[in-house]
Design a protein around this nucleic acid. Structure first.
Lengths: 199, 199
DNA sequence: TAATAAAATTAGACAGTGTTCAGTTTTTTT
DNA sequence: AAAAAAACTGAACACTGTCTAATTTTATTA
């Protein structure tokens, strides 16, 4: 078979991305296969290399999609959650990871070969989550704080991330942790309270 | 070739483990290959399956070895470091990860299939690090603290781990973080100070 | 000590994988 | 209508993990 016109370039990209994301959710990063994605999409392997530059490109796009879904999840939690918006964020961080362990883990299992190989689109999609947190942290702090809020927000994200990754990977559960979300929230609160008082 | 007697069972196990750990340090988890380990050790692939039950078994043993080296590194930092033993731990956590990015990352990239598939030996080697931290945290706190120190120590480990994993994976550097060790230490200190005052 | 059982080791088969590329078909441009 | 460009396939290549039959050596038994 030669050239086809079943889908436009954009449609084909979306088809492969959607199929790939679905496969990732089903089998996880370790058993993910580009050939399988192509087969399910009804195309040949080479098409992936045509649409995305490499398999890493497809993987990066899949993970960016996960990031976007994650950001939306946080936004929704903020909207429907209670007054404690910081708690909404921390809980939202965990619930998304626990509800989507395969796609969430894939974000951190896929090591991008070169640092600057992420497209501008990928970077933007991934940065959204940080921005959401930064906004809420800024609101939670006094206006005249001398803190680099962006940097501080990232540190709080890292704090929560550490707790979350232990849970999803199972090494925290191995030690019978009962309430990792609570622990993470405790650490975040302790820090925030200190910085709310200092002025 | 049939049965050989070049090495005892223990020697062979050590040989494969050493060779495997070396390969992991060189090429990282993604390009690690059991066949390559066997070749370098001068044995055939099947031998791995004979000595270790599966490739996962070898990988688990390799990662346990990394854990042990990591614990020793922390111990040394505690002995040669200054008075601030908490700072020694945090810095030691980072320096080991940054000096051994491949083997350190492999710990978290290798997902063990079944939760309870780690041998007793593996579990013990991996638990040492937690115990070291727990001991120091206990010393840093007042004696009559109502805290579950073991659990609290794990939470602080998770806090540092979050910062560290972002740095090693590169997603933190992507955002131009200048001093992740400092940030991690700040979060730990904030929490500890609070729990030192409360009584 | 001789015969038998058990253990260790290898080579090869199997079904996968990512990546590349010549060849074919369709669309676009000239 | 002819030429150029783009899209798509299928097969080849060199790998991978896992398993098994066959072979050789060691250990056990008679």
């Amino acid at each position: 078979m030669g050239r086809r016109s079943d889908h436009t370039r954009a449609e084909l990209r979306e088809l492969l991305l959607q199929t790939g994301h679905q496969l990732m959710a089903q089998v996880g990063y370790a058993r993910f296969s580009g050939r399988e994605v192509a087969k399910r999409a009804g195309y040949s392997v080479g098409t992936i290399y045509n649409v995305f530059e490499s398999l890493d490109g497809l993987l990066a796009a899949i993970n960016t999609r996960t990031f976007v879904l994650w950001s939306r999840h946080l936004q929704k939690r903020l909207e429907t959650g209670g007054e404690d918006r910081i708690a909404s964020l921390v809980e939202g961080y965990f619930t998304f990871a626990l509800d989507n362990p395969q796609t969430w883990s894939a974000i951190y299992e896929h090591r991008v070969p070169e640092k600057d190989s992420l497209s501008e689109e990928d970077l933007e999609g991934r940065g959204a989550l940080t921005l959401i947190v930064e906004q809420e942290v800024r609101t939670a702090l006094p206006e005249d704080t001398g803190l680099d809020v962006a940097r501080y927000a990232r540190s709080l994200i890292a704090t929560v991330h550490g707790h979350c990754s232990y849970v999803v990977s199972g090494s925290f559960a191995l030690l019978d942790e009962t309430d990792p979300v609570g622990s993470a929230l405790d650490r975040v609160r302790e820090s925030l309270e200190l910085h709310q008082q200092r002025r």
